[in-house]
Write a protein that binds this DNA or RNA. Structure first.
Lengths: 136, 136
DNA sequence: TTCTTGACTTGGATCCTGTCCATCGTAGGA
DNA sequence: TCCTACGATGGACAGGATCCAAGTCAAGAA
């Protein structure tokens, strides 16, 4: 996933130090950070970066399809850099941590036409809920 | 679902005019209102009702299992009075409206043990995303 | 290299959702 | 009818996210 910056440049993204830092923070590990956590990590390398810029950049990465937005608890949205490999989420109802899971079983049943109410479907999200070992 | 009030009374719920109005608003139709929308509708009948009361009452209805909390977009949570019949949600990415759907296909594959990371599972949520006819 | 310009960043105000708390009111049993 | 514990009130508060006017700068043009 370290070619994220290259892909962005290819698409004509104007590369600023702020955007680079945000992209690199997300690129680092596959945890699911909140916007504020991204801002905190980015600020370690670029202390003047503003929250608005982090929000803007995250929004752009989402609309470019490079990052997934995950809102699991009605609190802060989280950002998942693992957007190119379909997967699902396992969320702890206690502490809110998220794990990516890749069920090997039968694929999801598609929604039958008579249940679509005229919607044009774009995707399905599956969220497993439970308690992590620490919270149980 | 019009026996909601009866069920609540049975459970020893202290019945106040505020709680009655909130329950009746939810009981009305199977749309998925935000807390603020519930408050607005309740205030049409009981103008002095406060937001805190609506939040309290909704929270109690959720913990009684009479209403489901749905958070699909990281914005306002929505409340689904259709808590007694398992179903899934179809969400418009444009306007945020939610429809209940009842896929008839194969049930969801359960999460295999090696993918649970020690979590004790409590449930699965499935959310279909797309654009409604009006937003498409 | 320097210039130019429109896209990007800043930070503070503002909005929205939701919670908290001290005080007041009242449902329902005695 | 009276009591009292439970519920309602509303205003303060907190966190997440967005908006905006002003300043800055990346990158193409000359």
């Amino acid at each position: 996933m370290s070619d994220l910056l290259a892909r962005l440049r290819e698409r004509g993204w104007r590369m600023t130090s702020q955007r680079r830092v945000v992209a690199e923070v997300l690129d680092g590990d596959h945890v699911h950070l909140t916007a504020d956590e991204v801002h905190a990590r980015a600020a370690q390398r670029l202390p003047e970066i503003s929250r608005a810029t982090v929000y803007n950049t995250l929004g752009e990465l989402v609309s470019l399809g490079e990052v997934m937005e995950v809102s699991t608890d009605g609190r802060a949205r989280r950002y998942d850099p693992n957007a190119h490999h379909p997967h699902q989420h396992l969320v702890c109802s206690g502490c809110g941590t998220i794990r990516d899971v890749h069920p090997t079983g039968s694929p999801l049943a598609d929604l039958p036409a008579e249940e679509r109410f005229g919607f044009t479907l774009s995707g399905v999200e599956v969220t497993y809920r439970g308690l992590c070992p620490a919270c149980a």
